[in-house]
Design a protein around this nucleic acid. Structure first.
Lengths: 138, 138
DNA sequence: TATCTTAATGCAACTGAGTTGCATTTGTCA
DNA sequence: TGACAAATGCAACTCAGTTGCATTAAGATA
């Protein structure tokens, strides 16, 4: 899967009348270089580590903004809200001990089988999340 | 599926040193007569409608307690935490407009297929949730 | 490159779900 | 009927996320 760079995304946003700001660039870079979903708390921790001051309101607003622009998408894993760059529909393994999240190949025929069984419900989205113990924790 | 009555459940809890209280009986009855998962807000609304005063701390503690005793189990649907009486493993359809939840037949071979692909991860639990529009809302 | 417009930011104060400590009440059993 | 602990209610708290508003700064335009 070829990943779109931060530059390309910023250019696209520019075209829609949005600006390339420090916070926006930082957050985009973090999402692009991460192989797993990130929560607002993850982002804030990373900023703290890099000693970069980004206000929490800005983080929340930027997540909201990027999700609205379809640059990232929101997923709920247990009680925590995460975001990630949309890839092919896929699922997540969540380790209940160390909280590590791993992305998982999609289940190809899943949705089709469900659609057939539920003609009356228009499916817009679905999520398959698997909880357990990872190799290190089990 | 034969549903266990509130009496049977209370008896079981009695055996473990717990009491049959007004709040406990009320909450159990609500779960038993509901065909869909309930959130703490749902319970509190129902109490308000029936003009029955149950403190919010009591509701939260009772949910925690019943979940700990495996009488109900917790599920996360979008941003809201729900609880339901455990049935055969199943899934949920959530209408994004009216927020109505419907229970769904289990996907039989789902877990088995995933297990084979991920030998390194010990699966303890999983959830498949489907979001969209119900018959009325679409 | 100075100016202007408005997108983006930072701050403080707020909301709403859920939690905690503690004093009081109440179910159950001897 | 007491005694004991489980359960309750209340107030005060935590924590994620939101809002209003004044300030800053991208970046387009002159």
């Amino acid at each position: 899967m070829v990943m779109e760079g931060a530059g390309k995304i910023l250019e696209k946003l520019r075209g829609r009348g949005h600006r390339s700001t420090k916070a926006r660039r930082l957050i985009l870079e973090l999402f692009i270089s991460s192989d797993r979903p990130l929560s607002s708390a993850d982002l804030r921790k990373m900023f703290l580590l890099k000693k970069m001051a980004v206000n929490k309101t800005t983080v929340y607003r930027e997540l909201e903004f990027l999700a609205g622009e379809k640059i990232i998408e929101e997923i709920q894993l247990g009680k925590t809200r995460y975001f990630e760059i949309p890839k092919k529909r896929h699922h997540h393994l969540v380790c209940l001990k160390c909280r590590r999240i791993e992305c998982l190949e999609p289940e190809k025929n899943l949705l089709k089988r469900i659609t057939i069984k539920n003609k009356d419900f228009k499916i817009l989205n679905y999520s398959l999340e698997i909880f357990g113990l990872c190799l290190k924790c089990k």
